[in-house]
Amino acid sequence: MQRRIAGGLLVLALAAGPAAAELDLTGAWGQKMHEDRLDRGGGPDIGDFTGLPINEAALLRAQTWDANKWSVPEHQCAPHPADYGPHGPAHIRIWTTTDPNSFKVVAYHIMLGWMNPVRTIWLDGRPHPSPNAPHTWEGFSTGVWDGDTLVVKTTHLKEGWIRRNGIPRSANGTLTEFLIRHDNVLTWVSAVEDPVYLTEPYVRSWNWVLAPGLWINPYTCAARVEVERPQGFVAHWLPPGMNPMLKEFSDKTGFPTQVTNGGAAQLYPEYQLELKKLLPAQLPQWGEPPNPF
């Protein structure tokens, strides 16, 4: 009899738990900044659009972008959009909402350190909302487990950026992400698609390490007038090429604009052969590694 009860309890315990392949993603995670550190820390150079699958519309937006934008009160406290946010800096905290009866995970919530945006990823099968629903920094996300990988689809994104030097991503863009946990390492793969500004999906990945006790401070940004300007001031440069800083990256690296302007071809290994033809024989030595070729 006791053996039967124990067996029954075991069956119940198994039935109440998550599906076999689902992993627990909750906890505090410290971001590994071992890739693209310059880009993710201080930020990219103005005029560095290398490695991006962008079209001419995106290029013009970026060429006329002005960093003064961030001094305008209505822009000062903008968080990174969902597709850029994990690029960092972004320690994260993940928690769940569970069904009070079944204890199944209804949603994952991910808070990023920078500006504290909170993403919600619904796992309860609900549909994405109407096109008239608000487009937000975090968008509307739904997730399903594919084996031990959480696959997340996001729509309803507010217009944002994929590089912090003016490369835009439109509100028509969508996001597909893969959250993969290997022991205490969380790998987050992100693919952005945008019919307006990208010619191919833009794929990135980042890593975090489980960090119990890691505390994310509140990020209370307060927008203030920092420079007295007329109402409605919008920072931008006029085309073509009015921004004198656009050439700095090219001058520093020796890359011709044909290279600094990016394009989908640069995503593929064979582009290295093309690059060899485009680069000058002697690249400037500006604290950069020597010409790898």
């Binding site: 209505e74 822009h75 406290c77 903008a78 968080p79 500006m115 504290n116 945006p117 096109p131 008239n132 629903a133 608000p134 487009h135 937000t136 920094w137 309803h156 507010k158 217009e159 509100a171 990020y219 209370t220 940004c221 927008a223």
Partner: peptide, 24 residues
């Protein structure tokens, strides 16, 4: 908080906006 939510702005067409979407 941090350019998120708050006042909602209903346009003539298209998605409901917040302040930042009007700024865009």
């Amino acid at each position: 908080m941090n350019a998120q939510g708050g006042t909602l702005v209903v346009p003539a067409y298209g998605p409901i906006a917040d302040e930042y979407s009007v700024v865009i």
